[in-house]
């Protein structure tokens, strides 16, 4: 099946979604995804940041789709023509979604462990506006511990549901979920239940924001001061291939290895993640190159040039920072 995204064509197999096709092409035309996760089933469709315009549904039916569609959950049709960064409508909608995601976000990046590797931070840098139009009070939830290793800060959550799907799909029993509805919806456990299983730590890695953070790494260091190293060990539960975040000879934290889209290559167990923090526990392979375009790869936001990611549309002036 042939699909054209922002004037770049690619052949993909049937059942591929627009977002997957865009990731095959790669580069600037990949729509951002805050909730969809390629390794988890049924994710996607919720955050609406990956909205794209379908200018031609298929070669058989050349009509455009009137509404913007979520690229993560729309399958490709043969001859489909999609506009992502070449459509001002899509960029405007994305800007609005970022604004929606941020109106109740505490913007506490200076004290948030996720800062520097946060999808929402990158997204708002690329697509957001500096000023807020909201005068309302932000929604507040108490910060709680769910289990002895994970901290839940619901104020930062964007309700992507990834942590719910991961608990359903890679652990034996899910004890947390989304309670209530509308703007009162929150991730929580059932009556003071704690999340306790060998793979629960992966929730931290799939969380796109700082809602779920590693209590063993809490406030230890900013991520951009650490050197990510590929490391491995023999583990009876998981493949044992991780990224060790080091400062000098000290391992500050262990995470799974993430690809250029910020997704885990393999899920790792809690023993590797939380308990093995000695240099002697690991075979350090090599420094990890972070492929993802973010502050941790650029080291500074100034080096991330906004216009290189968002093309100025012909005839319009460049986006304001």
């Amino acid at each position: 099946m042939k699909i054209t995204i922002d004037n770049i064509s690619i052949e993909v197999s049937e059942g591929t979604t627009i977002l997957e096709a865009a990731r095959k092409i790669g580069g600037k035309i990949v729509p951002p995804a805050m909730c969809w996760y390629s390794k988890l089933k049924n994710t996607g469709g919720k955050c609406r940041t990956c909205l794209v315009k379908v200018a031609q549904s298929s070669s058989k039916d050349p009509r455009p789709i009137p509404k913007l569609v979520a690229s993560c959950s729309t399958p490709v049709q043969d001859g489909m023509v999609v506009q992502n960064i070449t459509s001002q409508e899509v960029l405007d909608a994305r800007k609005a979604i970022v604004e929606f995601l941020l109106i109740n976000h505490p913007l506490d990046c200076p004290v948030c462990d996720q800062a520097g590797e946060c999808d929402l931070q990158d997204l708002s840098f690329l697509h957001g506006v500096v000023e807020t139009r909201s005068d309302e009070e932000r929604r507040e939830f108490p910060v709680i511990d769910i289990g002895d290793k994970i901290k839940l800060n619901m104020n930062r959550c964007i309700l992507c549901y990834r942590c719910v799907f991961i608990a359903d799909q890679i652990t034996s029993k899910r004890v947390h979920g989304v309670l209530y509805r509308g703007d009162a919806a929150e991730i929580s456990t059932y009556i003071q239940n704690v999340i306790d299983n060998d793979f629960s730590g992966n929730m931290i890695d799939v969380c796109p924001v700082g809602a779920l953070t590693d209590r063993t790494f809490r406030f230890k260091s900013r991520v951009w001061f650490l050197n990510p190293m590929d490391a491995h060990r023999e583990c009876s539960h998981c493949p044992g291939k991780v990224t060790a975040w080091m400062f000098g000879n000290e391992i500050y934290r262990i995470t799974g290895r993430k690809d250029e889209f910020g997704e885990l290559e393999e899920f790792i167990c809690n023993e590797c993640r939380f308990e093995k923090k000695e240099l002697t526990d690991w075979f350090i392979e090599r420094p990890k190159k972070i492929k993802r375009e973010s502050v941790i790869s650029a080291n500074h936001y100034e080096k991330l040039i906004k216009s290189s990611i968002i093309h100025p549309i012909e005839g319009t002036t460049e986006q304001q920072e």
């Binding site: 940041t49 929606f100 109106i103 109740n104 909201s134 509805r181 509308g182 703007d183 919806a185």
Partner: peptide, 22 residues
């Protein structure tokens, strides 16, 4: 509508909760 939004997708969850106080 603020009270009845399911809260799944961000425009509706945040948008309805923003319009109401305004």
């Amino acid at each position: 509508y603020r009270h009845e939004s399911c809260g799944q997708c961000s425009p509706c969850r945040e948008g309805t909760a923003w319009m109401e106080p305004v």
